[in-house]
Simulated assay, not measured.
Amino acid sequence: MSWLESSFMARRGVAGGKPGTTHELTMEKQGKYHYVYGPYVDPVLHIQPGDIVVAETHDAFEGKLKTEQDKPSEKLNMPFGNPQNGPIHVAGVVKGDVIAVHIHDIAPRGPQPVGTTVLMHGFGGLVATNNTAMLHDPLPEMVRKMTVDRSGIQFNEKIKLPYEPFLGTLGVSPEIEAVSAVQPDYWGGNMDLPDMAPGAVAYFPVHHEGGYVYLGDCHATQGDGELAGAAIEMPATVTIQIDLIKNWPIKWPRLENEEFIMAIGSTRPMEDAARIAYCELIDWMVKDYGFDKLEAYLLLTQAGRVRLGNMVDPKYTLGASIKKSIIG
């Protein structure tokens, strides 16, 4: 039996984890890509719980960095980063529900070299930014283009990295805000969390009728923290399955895969993001696994794990997890 049959999506979802109709969300059908998560645009697609969406995503730069001679400061117009597919309206979804997204596949799309990473002014974990003011000059700008396919990523002549794709941005609309797609928070967004990978199921608390699912910013691989501010960004063909869960109140995004469950927090400072994630994970263990709160607290002290998504965005993202084999 596949672990998916015992997932929260399969056990609690309206569609029971069973696939429905497949919808193509090509670049042409998407039309205008969006740079904010919010409720103020019309849905580009209406689906039923269980339906599958195959979406053509842009890279984080909307394809504007075409050569290694391009300068991000000349080609990009920040904060217009992370163009998003969507929003996708899911029938029957209301505030207080949960949207479940099973990530089926992420494939590189377009002519090679399809991968791009950069150093850019005012962005990164080890440089001066708008939030961390310094007097020193910015580092030089740099663009690197790389061949990416399922066999790996040609980082340079000597180094080939494994292909470990994931969705940098995934989430639902806030209730009244329209918020930059560069920022993560309780709706998901730009979490840059490598566990948002094929095979995983992500869960998001709904704040707007229909959910309004957004996705984009695919990465071919990324180290913990996305240190310089850009992973190996790539346009992609993304296949996801979306379901609806009723009567399962959660406050922050969650994720599960075959090995573990994870709660996700995004804020600054970084330790408060970890606190959000661990508090949400304890709540999950109490309500769905029968733990006493203090017993869960003690257990996570010994067996909890933290994944650093990003340490470069307006808010940092951390995921707190525990192996399913431990909690049963």
Rank of each mutant, 00 (worst) to 15 (best):
A273P: 09
G265L: 03
E271V: 05
R268S: 11
D272Q: 08
W252I: 05
E256D: 10
D243K: 04
S266H: 02
A274N: 12
I250L: 04
E256A: 11
R254T: 07
I250F: 04
P249D: 04
E259I: 03
G265E: 05
Q241I: 01
I245V: 13
T267E: 01
K246C: 03
R254F: 12
I245Y: 00
E271S: 14
D272H: 13
W248H: 08
I261A: 12
M270R: 10
S266A: 15
L244S: 00
M262T: 15
M270Y: 08
G265P: 08
K251H: 12
P269Q: 03
E259R: 14
R254C: 09
E271R: 09
S266Y: 01
R254P: 00
N257D: 12
I242H: 00
P253L: 07
W252R: 10
L244F: 00
I245E: 08
E259T: 14
W248Y: 01
Q241S: 06
A263I: 09
R268N: 15
S266I: 01
M262K: 11
W252T: 11
I250Q: 04
G265M: 07
G265H: 03
A263Q: 09
S266G: 06
R254Q: 13
N247C: 05
A274S: 13
N247E: 05
G265F: 02
D243W: 04
P253C: 12
I261W: 07
A263E: 12
T267F: 02
K251T: 14
R268W: 02
P253W: 14
P253G: 11
I242W: 02
A274I: 13
F260P: 00
D243Y: 02
E271L: 09
A274H: 10
P249A: 05
R254K: 04
A274M: 14
P249F: 05
I245A: 05
P269D: 04
L255Y: 03
T267I: 03
A274W: 00
P249N: 08
N257E: 03
S266F: 01
M270F: 11
A273F: 02
T267M: 03
I242C: 05
D272L: 12
I264C: 03
W252D: 06
M262V: 15
